[in-house]
């Protein structure tokens, strides 16, 4: 068993198949430990399970503690989806998260690549300048962004929601780290073949860092999908709300109808859970990559 930092990759791929020091014989202690871990895991998902099960209940059953509804119903979903707002918010979130992710993947890796592979005066200063923005909390910028959006007429527009997140220092740093692993010879060879710099970056360097790109994409997407404070500030038109902002408004409106609030919450959660079920491996690996290198 090797001991490199690429443990991350193994973690995603292997399901604990390697023989390890502590994993030898089956002892009672082991069983207790496993059971506790398992119960802990079940407890962890209980809030999600409660939410889903309540969304399938009629109002009179809501305060019942049973997890399985006596008469399961989709009526709450029909009611919530009927007025079309949730669908709209879903599409808004999807569009915004997708566009932002594409932009970040493109620009962050471009900048990371330039800072890693090009030698020119000012490179170091630019790198430090970009990195220093990591120290500035988003919350500090929301007021200036709001004033900016107001004077440019960006309030209540998709662009207004997206513009602060079109590039990230985190992604730039992550990609720079990964481009370090791309050998310069590869790029030099392409240069001799007469490719221009853009082609070299796009068709030679980028394919070599796809795991990093997908890790970055997952992080950026998830971050934008769940983003709250900025969309809350910049939108006032309910047609432009993102799912989290819409859910807040919706929940405040409903107030007592907890089964409807749970339905709304489920609608915001189910898509990411589904995506996770299908791409579990990549997502976990991506999170580890982004977490460890970033």
């Amino acid at each position: 068993m090797t001991a490199t930092l690429d443990a991350a990759g193994r973690l995603g791929a292997g399901e604990g198949g390697t023989a390890r020091f502590f994993r030898t014989p089956i002892r009672p202690g082991r069983i207790v430990m496993w059971t506790l871990l398992f119960l802990g895991g079940i407890t962890m998902v209980m809030p999600i399970v409660f939410m889903l099960s309540t969304s399938l209940k009629y109002p009179h059953e809501v305060f019942d503690l049973s997890l399985i509804p006596q008469e399961p119903t989709l009526e709450n979903y029909i009611y919530v989806l009927e007025d079309g707002r949730f669908f709209r918010w879903f599409i808004n979130s999807l569009l915004i998260a997708t566009a932002t992710t594409l932009s970040c993947v493109f620009f962050d890796s471009l900048v990371g690549y330039v800072l890693c592979k090009f030698k020119f005066r000012g490179r170091y200063i630019i790198f430090i300048a970009i990195l220093s923005t990591l120290m500035i909390p988003t919350e500090m910028l929301v007021i200036p962004w709001y004033l900016m959006a107001q004077s440019f007429g960006w309030l209540d527009t998709y662009w207004g929601i997206m513009f602060p997140g079109m590039m990230t220092a985190f992604g730039t740093f992550l990609m720079k780290q990964f481009f370090e692993t791309v050998p310069d010879d590869f790029l030099e060879a392409a240069r001799i073949d007469g490719m221009n710099e853009f082609q070299i970056w796009w068709s030679i360097a980028m394919p070599l860092v796809t795991p990093a790109l997908s890790a970055l994409a997952i992080f950026i997407f998830l971050g934008n999908w769940t983003a709250f404070i900025w969309p809350l500030i910049v939108t006032t038109d309910s047609n432009l709300y993102t799912l989290p902002v819409g859910l807040t408004t919706f929940s405040v409106e409903q107030q007592i109808d907890w089964e409807l609030i749970m339905t709304g919450a489920s609608l915001a959660t189910i898509p990411t859970l589904l995506v996770f079920l299908f791409f579990q491996r990549y997502i976990i690996r991506g999170v580890v990559l982004a977490g460890l290198k970033g």
């Binding site: 107001q150 309030l155 209540d156 006032t236 038109d237 309910s238």
Partner: peptide
């Protein structure tokens, strides 16, 4: 007419 939250500004 404008959304309530935005109206004053």
């Amino acid at each position: 007419h404008f959304p309530y939250a935005d109206y004053r500004t």
